[in-house]
Design a binder for these strands. Structure first.
Lengths: 172, 172
DNA sequence: TATTGTTATACTCTATAACTATA
DNA sequence: TATAGTTATAGAGTATAACAATA
């Protein structure tokens, strides 16, 4: 309890932002971020949202999310693997991977094939269309998405950033 | 969210002879990450999850999420602001901010005070307890959380990383 | 008419238990 | 018994529309 007030009222009868700053000084000073500016996790989260946003925009013509792209990429690089292996590698829980695969399979981007060795497991493989879409996606990501990041940071910084993030992801 | 590491499974020179290890001998070489290793967004997301996970652990004694911590921090640095201003600054939508404030207020960490200037808005302020908890949280974050990141990356790299992430968050 | 806080709602992500069919 | 895929479900997080009080 005890609010220890003193500044309970310091509000301004300002015009909402968007409008003309006609009279008096702008009554909308930006807020102080304080120690938030030094919190790595905070910038990490904001940056991640921005990057995913841009990824979605760049790959929009193919209608692929970052997660779906990562699945197709992994299937292409790891033929003969089953659902559990792919899901685990991407940090996706098996139950949640089912609907994801249903969506990709219904778009004819990949298929589930019952393994002959172990009839419990489904071997995942890209379809022809899946390979085509993945190839186009890779090109869009490289020429639009990553290229834009490169432009903002510079090639050297981009690599340094990637190295540090990978290190955190792997060792922290 | 455990990732069930997979990249650590040593170099496995799979026996060249045919197949059928017949029984035993688990054939589980790590998967190829392929172009995923170069995707900034991928490492960004993975790193963010790790960092938030660690934040939760470090601040566990105070039962504060990163989002809640950021709210308390902002209130402390910006007395006299209303819900919309705080929420907007943190990228939280006003409707979603209501339940969040309810939770903080029910724990007596902050209070809503009707503004006398504009009786539509609620001025937000930390309570005494809120200030105390925030102070403790800051200390935990600095001495445990950020300290651990510093140890992993080194002070110079940590700053470089923060700068690049802030730049992406602000300009990308 | 516009804005603040709010409710209701919905959709995505994530997480856990339990079922089935195989092994 | 244990494992792979699946279902059901619950909880966060996030998004939009709309309403009451106030401006």
């Amino acid at each position: 309890m005890t609010v220890s007030k003193a500044t309970a009222d310091a509000v301004k009868p300002s015009r909402a932002s968007g409008k003309a700053p006609v009279d008096g000084a702008a009554e909308n000073p930006a807020l102080q971020m304080g120690e938030l500016s030094e919190l790595l996790g905070y910038s990490l989260k904001r940056a991640q949202l921005k990057v995913f946003e841009d990824f979605l925009r760049c790959v929009a013509p193919l209608q692929l999310t970052p997660a779906q792209f990562s699945v197709l990429l992994l299937l292409d690089n790891n033929p003969g693997r089953n659902q559990t292996e792919i899901a685990n590698t991407l940090g996706i829980l098996r139950p949640n991977f089912v609907a994801m695969l249903d969506a990709l399979e219904s778009r004819d981007l990949c298929t589930r094939v019952r393994s002959t060795n172990d009839r419990r497991s489904h071997i995942l493989m890209l379809t022809e269309k899946g390979r085509t879409v993945l190839a186009r996606a890779k090109k869009l990501v490289a020429t639009k998405h990553e290229a834009r990041l490169n432009e903002l940071l510079g090639p050297a910084n981009r690599v340094a950033l990637l190295d540090m993030l990978s290190k955190i992801a792997a060792e922290f």
